[in-house]
Amino acid sequence: MNPLRILYDLLLTKASYTIIPMLILMVGCGGPPAQNPLLTSATEEYNAAKQDDMVVRFAPVALKEAEETLEISRELWTAKADKSSVEHYAYLAKQKTFIARETAQLNAANSEISRGEVERQQVLLEVRRSEADRSEARAQRALLEAQSERTLAVEARESAEQSRQTAMEASQRAEESRQTAMEASQRADLLAQRVNELEARPTDRGLVLTLGDVLFEFGKATMHSDGMKSMENLTTFLQQYPGRNILIEGFTDNIGSEAYNLELSRNRANSVKSDLVNRGIAESRIRIRGYGIQYPAASNATEDGRQKNRRVEVIISDQEGNIVDRIR
């Protein structure tokens, strides 16, 4: 049959008004394979997902479903099925590819969560351990601090105690010093009083007590009873100050020979010494010396002066018993 004849026949029929456009449409749809944009896009998405290791690894089933759906779309397209069918399956394939991606992400995330939970548990353990370490270190430090504070407190108390004792001792020493000073002062007062009683006068050589001529009878060595008062005072003094010694010096006027006066002055001094020894004073504490007419205390030209020269002087030593001798 001639195809041209068919066309001709068709053009002659009334039905041709509807049939011809339909034929043209059918030829257009099933004609030379033009690309379907939605199928192309779905194929690209699928290929990209298949190249993605993560999708292949974590969502193989979902990827397979996408592939199967894409295959349907492709077959429909190859069979020149209607566009809407091809695109329907292309759409489903594309969405399934996305689902595969999301599923892969979900599975990857879940896998990471499992690993993360394990890590978190380990880290938690570490935290507890480090906290325990820290608490222990803190407790240790606190203990050390407490110990050192206690030591400091003990030391402070001891130091305070020592200070108190030192202060007390110092106070005692001060008191002792005060008493010593007071006693010394009292002793000095007493000495001064005794010296006053003796009617002794302080000189460069020490205290000097002068027993006047009136105590001795002319040309004799014996004392008047009036001199006894002075002797009593001297005895009392020497008894109270046993550390002090005395030097008794005798002097005369210039009446008579020098040798006679020297003898006389010595005798008078000795007479005083004997009296003191009789009163209980140790002989070793008493030295005597006669000077005769030497060292007149006044002029021998008058009776008054000569009377002053007839005398005995008692020199009282210092506390150690030393007496400075007369320098010629």
């Binding site: 996305f98 689902i99 999301e102 599923t103 979900l106």
Partner: peptide
Amino acid sequence: ELAQAKAQSGKAE
């Protein structure tokens, strides 16, 4: 289904 997958993976992330 895609919405489900997205929600699940989003939450997991």
